[in-house]
Amino acid sequence: TYYTVKSGDTLNKIAAQYGVSVANLRSWNGISGDLIFVGQKLIVKKG
């Protein structure tokens, strides 16, 4: 599943929405910090 980042989104918010961990979101998307951008597509695997 792909999720497109919207204004106001955070990794924590997206992780909670999908029932996954922030660590997994980072791993699946090659993100090291907490910086995400509006319009960015993130890979999300269902929890």
Rank of each mutant, 00 (worst) to 15 (best):
G8H: 07
D9F: 01
A23V: 10
Y2K: 06
Y3K: 02
I36P: 04
T1Q: 12
D34A: 07
N29R: 00
V22T: 10
Y18S: 06
G39S: 05
G47H: 14
K41T: 14
A16K: 13
Q40D: 08
F37P: 05
N29G: 01
T4I: 11
K46C: 10
I31A: 03
K41W: 09
F37S: 10
N29D: 00
A23I: 11
V38T: 09
L25T: 01
L42P: 00
V38G: 05
Q17M: 14
L42F: 04
V5S: 03
K6C: 05
Q17P: 01
Y18D: 01
Q40Y: 04
L11D: 01
S7C: 06
D9L: 01
N24W: 11
Y18P: 00
D34S: 09
K45N: 14
D34E: 11
L42C: 02
S7E: 15
V22D: 05
I43F: 11
F37R: 09
G30E: 11
V44M: 06
T1H: 13
R26P: 00
Y2S: 08
F37E: 11
L25K: 00
W28I: 05
S27R: 11
L42G: 00
G39Q: 04
D9K: 01
I36N: 02
G19F: 08
V44C: 05
Y3M: 05
N24A: 11
D9Y: 01
I14H: 00
W28N: 03
L11A: 02
A16D: 13
A15T: 02
L11I: 10
A15Y: 01
D34K: 06
S7L: 12
G39V: 01
Y2H: 10
G47T: 12
S32R: 08
K41H: 11
G30Y: 10
G19I: 05
K41C: 08
T10R: 05
G30Q: 11
K6D: 05
Q40K: 05
K13V: 10
G39W: 03
K45D: 15
T10I: 04
N24T: 13
L11Q: 02
G47S: 14
S7R: 10
K6F: 04
V38S: 09
G39C: 05
G8Q: 06
G47E: 15
G33Y: 07
K45T: 13
L35D: 14
K13R: 10
S7V: 14
V22P: 09
L25D: 00
G33P: 03
V44E: 00
D34H: 10
Q17K: 11
V22I: 12
G39A: 04
A16W: 10
G30L: 10
D34W: 09
A15N: 01
Q17G: 07
L11G: 00
G8I: 03
V44R: 01
S7A: 14
D34F: 09
T4V: 14
S21P: 09
